[in-house]
Design a protein around this nucleic acid. Sequence first.
DNA 1: ACAAAAGTGTTGTTACTACACCCATGG
DNA 2: CCATGGGTGTAGTAACAACACTTTTGT
Lengths: 230, 230
Amino acid sequence: MAESTSAHTAPAHSALATVFQVRENELQVLLWERARDPFQGDWSLPGGSLGVGETLEASILRHLAAKVDVREVAHLEQLGTWSHPSRHPEHWELATAYVGLVPLGIDPRVPADTRWHPVDALPATAFDHGAIVLAGRERLRGKLSYSNVGFALAPKTFTLAELRDIYTAALGYDVSATNLKRVLLRRGAIETTGGRRTHGPAGGRPAEVFRFRTSHLEVTDPFAVLRPPT
Amino acid sequence: MAESTSAHTAPAHSALATVFQVRENELQVLLWERARDPFQGDWSLPGGSLGVGETLEASILRHLAAKVDVREVAHLEQLGTWSHPSRHPEHWELATAYVGLVPLGIDPRVPADTRWHPVDALPATAFDHGAIVLAGRERLRGKLSYSNVGFALAPKTFTLAELRDIYTAALGYDVSATNLKRVLLRRGAIETTGGRRTHGPAGGRPAEVFRFRTSHLEVTDPFAVLRPPT
DNA sequence: ACAAAAGTGTTGTTACTACACCCATGG
DNA sequence: CCATGGGTGTAGTAACAACACTTTTGT
C-alpha cells in the first residue's frame, strides 16, 4: 500500500544533468567520458548518487560542482525520471534528470575527462543518456518560445544579433533579430540598457545593448489559446 | 561518480498518481483515506512502492489497478519526482507522481476507503500530496490549451455544450462553446460523427455529436511564437 | 407563438511574420 | 561615398474573442 513502512529492495537513485550552453554557434551539452565499464569510453551525463538527507536538486548541484562552477548554471529544472529496469546493465538504478543552462561566453574550467559536445553530433553515449539529452533539448526548445528562459543562455548584456544567434543555435532554425526583439520587448522579457556596442572591423552601426529583466523563469505566454475571460 | 557500482543506502521509491475526472461539473481527484499512521485519517494519492524489475509506469498502473479499472485511465503521463528528505516522517522515500485522466461519464468501482474530491476543496492531505495534486492540475490546465488532451476527459462522443462544461470545470473559468468548437476544429482535434443528440426537456435544437480524432496525446499548437520559418 | 438550446456570421483585435527602407559607423 | 551591420516602418496574415443573429426543437 502506498507510503507504508516497507523494508523492500529499493533501487539506487542518481541525479543527472543535461547542462547546455551555446558555444561556437551550436547548442552543446557537457558530457563525461567513462573510464570504466560499463560503457567504458562512452560519454555520459554528469551526476551521481543521491546522498542521505539530500534532495534531488541539492544532489545534482553537488555533483555538478565537481564538473563546473555551479554559480555559472543560470537555470536548473527537473526534466524527468528514467526507470527502465535494464537501463543500467549491472544494477537497478533510477535516474532523475535535470536541465541546466549556462550563459554564453562563460568558459567553465572542466575536468580533463569532461567535454562539450554539439547536441547535433553526439558521440556514443552510455546508458540511456542519449535519449535524455534529446529530451532535455526538447524541453529547452519549448520553453524558449513561451517563457523568458533565454536569460539563462544569454550573457548579462547582449546585442540583438547576439541573442538571435543564441536562439538560432538552440532552436535549430533561423530566427529573425527584428521579430525576436519585438516579441521579447512586447512581453517585457528584455529591456535596453542604454549602452551601445560596436563590433564589426568593417564598420556598421553600433548595436543597442539589452538585458533580460529578470533572471528567474517566468512564463510570458501562459495561455496561447483558451485564455481566461478578461 | 555517476552511475558507478556503489552499494549505498538507497531511498525507497514509490509511484503515485493524481487521477482526475470531471464529476458534477467539477474537477475531482481520486484520494485514499489512510487507515494507519502516519497521517491516519488524512487523504493520500493512490500508489505504492516500485517493484523489482518494474518501470515506474508499470508500477503506477499496477497500483492503480487496485483502485480503478486501469482501462478507464485514458491518459497517463509523468509529472515529476518529489524528493524532500522529510516528506515521509518515518523513512526516506522518493515519489514519482503521474497524472492520470478518466473520461467523464464513467463511474469506476472504487474501494470503500477511496473517494473523489473536488480539487478546489481538498481535505487534509498526507505527506506532500496536496502540493502534488495542485501541480498535476497545473499540468493539465496547460496541456488543455496547446494539445488535444481533452480527449482523455471527454466521453467518446459528446456535444459541444458537454465539452464546454468539461473544459470549464478543468480550467476553472468560463469557456465559450462557440469558440471552443472553432479552435478544436481548426486544429483538427475533433470532428463531427454525423449524429445528433437532443437533451433538454423543454426543447431546443438537437446538438451535433463530435468525437476527438485521436485518443493519444498530440501537441496541436507546438509553437505559439518563434515558429520555424515556412 | 414562445422558450430553450445549438449553431453560424461577422467584426474587431492582437500577435506575429516578412520585407522594404532608413540610420550610423569605419575605411 | 560605399560597404557593413543595425534599426524602424509597414503591410499582410492567422488565430482568436465577443456578440448578434439564425436555426431547430418541445410545449
